[in-house]
Write a protein that binds this DNA or RNA. Structure first.
Lengths: 157, 157
DNA sequence: CATTAGATGCATTTCATATGAATGTATAGA
DNA sequence: TCTATACATTCATATGAAATGCATCTAATG
């Protein structure tokens, strides 16, 4: 059982945007950061845009930014969006479907999975902003939009 | 996020074996029940055998049966086996891996998922034995647990 | 010893996913 | 206004894991 690359890249994109604050970041730049296909990321971004997670700005100097603060974006909502809401198994055509107790158990397990993610927000997984900015090669001058609190505070470990 | 067909078929096989009691059931028969590839199911079965979930009997009138009572087989253990124990994402090569908070959150969610499955046993999802026996076309005379009767019933085609 | 059924390795096919290419649309700046 | 840049959209292609098929081996039964 694996998260699709689609979800993986969507989450990484969101982390990069969270770290970049109000700065616009281009799809090309993000794709280069992770060494993935520009075209592929484009489609993922469109999904994120349509779902209201990010804002996209066209034209020269365009790019992406979060539509809301990272602290207001639920990881559960993100994963629900990127993974779709379909069940873990497809029982259509299965002979024993009417008598099978599996779907309900799997649905319960899936709910538990998503419930954990609902308890975290984007800001929780992008909390090491100092380290992340270094990795993303963001100049420290371009501080994350809101108040710049003590960078030492960001370290969670 | 989906369970692999591999897991799906493994679980279905286990349900059929649970419903068949001590009777040996051939791989061919199970494959025909679900309309899937005999060869494919063979490999899944081998995995279940090596992991100690089932007993396999070679030779004429051979087949499969559960290695332990269905009430002692945990669904969590089964899914852990069929899905492997690898994480939901592969972070090797990801630039931000050292600062990324995602893996730990996903691991926690996965644990919650498996914890739910650990709370159920094979017998829980195969509990509608009367209905299942009808679907599997198991004669009601062949009681769920005990001895075999009519040898003619062994032939699957 | 012939038949049945699981064990195993290898080749092939299938299909969702990922990638690439081409074109359209919107914005900024010279 | 013109050009460069960047997101939007559609269609075509490539890739890789999963599934399937085939051949051969081992084991058990009558």
């Amino acid at each position: 059982m694996k998260l699709s690359h689609h979800s993986d890249y969507a989450l990484r994109t969101m982390i990069q945007l969270a770290t970049s604050g109000d700065e616009l970041v281009s799809i090309r730049h993000i794709a280069q950061t992770y060494g993935i296909s520009h075209n592929h990321l484009m489609k993922i971004v469109q999904g994120l845009g349509r779902a209201g997670f990010i804002e996209t700005v066209r034209g020269r100097h365009g790019g992406l930014r979060l539509a809301r603060p990272a602290s207001e974006i639920s990881l559960g909502a993100l994963v629900r969006h990127t993974e779709g809401e379909n069940g873990l198994v497809d029982c259509t055509g299965c002979l024993i479907a009417p008598a099978c107790g599996l779907p309900s158990v799997l649905a319960e397990a899936m709910q538990a999975f998503l419930a954990v993610l609902d308890g975290y927000r984007l800001s929780d997984v992008a909390s090491r902003s100092h380290m992340l900015r270094a990795l993303f090669d963001i100049p420290t001058s371009a501080a994350p939009s809101q108040h710049a609190l003590d960078p030492a505070q960001c370290h969670t470990n």
